[in-house]
Nucleic acid binder design. Sequence first.
DNA 1: TAAATTAGCGTACAAATGTACGCTCAACTT
DNA 2: AAGTTGAGCGTACATTTGTACGCTAATTTA
Lengths: 205, 205
Amino acid sequence: MGVRAQQKEKTRRALVDAAFNQLSAERSFSSLSLREVAREAGIAPTSFYRHFKDMNELGLTMVDEGGLTLRQMMRKGRQRAEAGGSVIRISVDTFIEVLESNPNVFRILLHERSGTSAAFRAAVEREIEHFISELAHYTEAQANRTPDLARAQAEALVILVFNAGASALDLKRSERKALADQLVLQLRMVATGAEALQQKMDNRT
Amino acid sequence: MGVRAQQKEKTRRALVDAAFNQLSAERSFSSLSLREVAREAGIAPTSFYRHFKDMNELGLTMVDEGGLTLRQMMRKGRQRAEAGGSVIRISVDTFIEVLESNPNVFRILLHERSGTSAAFRAAVEREIEHFISELAHYTEAQANRTPDLARAQAEALVILVFNAGASALDLKRSERKALADQLVLQLRMVATGAEALQQKMDNRT
DNA sequence: TAAATTAGCGTACAAATGTACGCTCAACTT
DNA sequence: AAGTTGAGCGTACATTTGTACGCTAATTTA
């Protein structure tokens, strides 16, 4: 890659990073202005357009990138689970860690999921869908579930985890422990219930 | 109430209604400006201050009012359930109806739950908490649950319902049917699972 | 009836925003 | 070596925003 393209990429990164850094509990993506982001990235407002058509395009990039980051981290965590122990417990702990080290990545997904732009909502759903289908396949194979039961179960699990994540963002570290415990309990409910429903269906034939 | 106070109340309502009416899939509360709301309500921008300190105060009013509306409608629906039939099924159907007739009320709760203002988030949580504790008490009495198991179960149920609501907002009427069915399945999972866990605990003593 | 209160208005202003336009100059192509 | 490209900049402008201030006129209070 030429010097020129390299520099361009660097600036582009600066923009994305600047936007991520400006996110916080008090600042959502949609409240960021193009000028603010450019300022933080150290370029002139008008130079922004050399990289993105508008703020929307930046945001979608962030959603995609953020989703990827999250999935990679979760996958890494799942490897730990293969060494033995409760899958649920380990997944929850991993998730909390991911959350703590990337709060802003999680924030944008969470907020834009119920956001004002259809494109954003779709992008977030797509990311969540990745989680769900990965998990559904896992359960289908592991626990011999009917596809649609596996699907419903996986979806319920993911939703519960995401929502707990949302609450966790506002909590102190000590309170998070209790939250994680309750989440584990809820996930077990779903898993146990799914198993019971599956049994009932199997016996009926 | 004097003529004067009556007129004031009327204008205040006009403001709240104007704000609710401007909400849509493409327009969140935080994207509304004070001037827009005033314009829609048919008063001068500066007159806004005769009723609310700022947009934030308006928003909090809307959250409180919206939560109240939702709870009243759900309560009315629960009466239908007492006539017999699956509590879960009837509650879900009621919820979908409520959603369809008050999409904007639901939207503001949903969006501000992950919003940018701590006050808003707290207000929404408070509303959701109402739902949860009502349901937890119901379950505790009805199904002899341990308090904390009842609590975890109720929370899981409410979260699943709310999330399905969020998805439903983006769906056509025909697709909502399938969504409702899956939701019912998920709720049954939680209920069944909670029951099984309860049994296990009981047997252990 | 006289005085006090106040909802609503119009004017005004500073601040911030998105973006059009044209320039520069370093990097790349031929 | 000569010519082309394009990232980044500065200037400029029309819009929109929140809100300060002071007035009016109708209602309420005394």
